[in-house]
Simulated scan of single mutants.
Amino acid sequence: MMGMLDGRVAVITGAGRGIGREHALLFAAQGAAVVVNDLGGSNTGEGADAGPAHEVVAEITANGGRAVANTDSVADWDGAKRVVQQAIDEFGRLDVLVNNAGILRDAFIAGMAEDQWDAVINVHLKGHFAMLHHAAAYWKEQSKAGEQPTAAVINTASGSGVTLPNAGQANYGAAKAGIAALTLIAAEELERYGVRVNAIAPIARTRLTLATPGMGALMAEPDDGELDLFAPANISPLVGYLASEKCPVTGKVYAVQGGAISLLQGWQDVETIETDKVWELDDIAARLPGA
């Protein structure tokens, strides 16, 4: 039986656990060959463990799928390049990049240490860009050689960065907002090379969401036999469709949680004041929108 991703080659970062693992399993079940990337670190990005990536690969191959493991850090420029190159070396091409790897180091701004900021920005924002850069360079080369790709990138933003700012997550929210902006810019730049770029802002029951204050009760596992709409596996079908050749969508950010998928839009002009003179402080004080 043909799958929607038959013949596609995908790199999925952070695919050893949680949502990324479910992406990898779905992609493989739909016919894609998958590079399962996961450093295997803790929630905070510390340590490394090759186990999770290799376990997912074993599960895929046991079910007749094609997959290889990669344990490079996406925050390392050369490591990101190795992930992309591994897809090309192992499977002959790269069609899909799913940027999913992430960590948390929550703290309030006044108490946040520099390394807490840097670590989260590096894994999320730099990690997304590093992977995107090396994949884009490959697709640009293909296009210029007359082999126009039909490629897709799916980035992972968050409501914490684009819809619901969350106190204690300045680093995470800033990175995720940056990823949403990066997605829109990349969609504009890469369309000429046959590459679509979209992002999702997911909410599902993972070790990161369970570690976020206030999310535990919302993410509680349902009783046996009840529909589990917040299972990580319920995020992956949207990603699978966005990765498919049939999907025409690019430059979009979608929130996906439970039984809902919403198209998000960014900063908009909601109220404007104007003047035909040089701005005066008193005039602004009297009329500033939102004041």
Rank of each mutant, 00 (worst) to 15 (best):
L125S: 06
A157H: 10
A157I: 05
A50L: 12
Y138Q: 08
E114Q: 15
D76M: 08
V83P: 06
A152R: 12
F91R: 05
P149H: 10
A75K: 01
E46D: 14
D76Y: 06
A101V: 06
R82Q: 11
A24N: 01
A110V: 14
A69Q: 02
A53E: 05
T61M: 04
V123M: 06
V68G: 13
D106T: 06
V98I: 10
V56L: 04
A28P: 04
A29D: 09
P149Y: 15
V74T: 12
D38P: 02
G102V: 07
Q116A: 08
D49N: 15
S42M: 05
H124W: 00
G161N: 05
H133E: 10
R105V: 03
A145H: 10
A87L: 08
I103L: 02
A24W: 00
Q30P: 02
V123E: 08
A48V: 01
V123A: 12
D95G: 12
V83L: 07
G41E: 05
S73H: 05
E59D: 09
I121F: 13
H128A: 10
K144P: 11
G79P: 00
N37G: 09
N63P: 08
V162L: 02
W77P: 14
V162E: 06
V123L: 03
F108I: 13
H54P: 07
D38Y: 00
S143F: 11
N37E: 02
Q148P: 10
V57S: 00
W117Q: 05
P149M: 11
A33D: 04
M131T: 03
D115T: 15
S73N: 11
D95Q: 11
K81L: 10
A130H: 13
V56R: 01
K140H: 14
V68F: 11
S42R: 11
T44P: 03
N70F: 07
L25G: 00
F129D: 03
Q30H: 06
I109W: 14
N155T: 06
G65W: 01
G79H: 00
I109Y: 15
I109N: 13
V96C: 05
G159T: 14
Q148Y: 06
K81R: 15
Q86C: 07
G92D: 09
L104F: 11
V36G: 02
V120W: 07
F129I: 06
A80T: 04
V120A: 01
V34C: 03
I103H: 02
G159A: 11
E46N: 13
Q142I: 08
W139A: 01
A58Q: 14
N37Y: 09
D72P: 07
D95P: 03
T150A: 15
R82G: 09
G51K: 10
D72L: 07
E141M: 09
V68T: 00
I103C: 01
G47W: 03
E55G: 12
A119T: 14
T150R: 14
L25P: 04
G111W: 10
I60F: 02
R66M: 13
G65Q: 05
A157T: 13
N37V: 07
H54T: 15
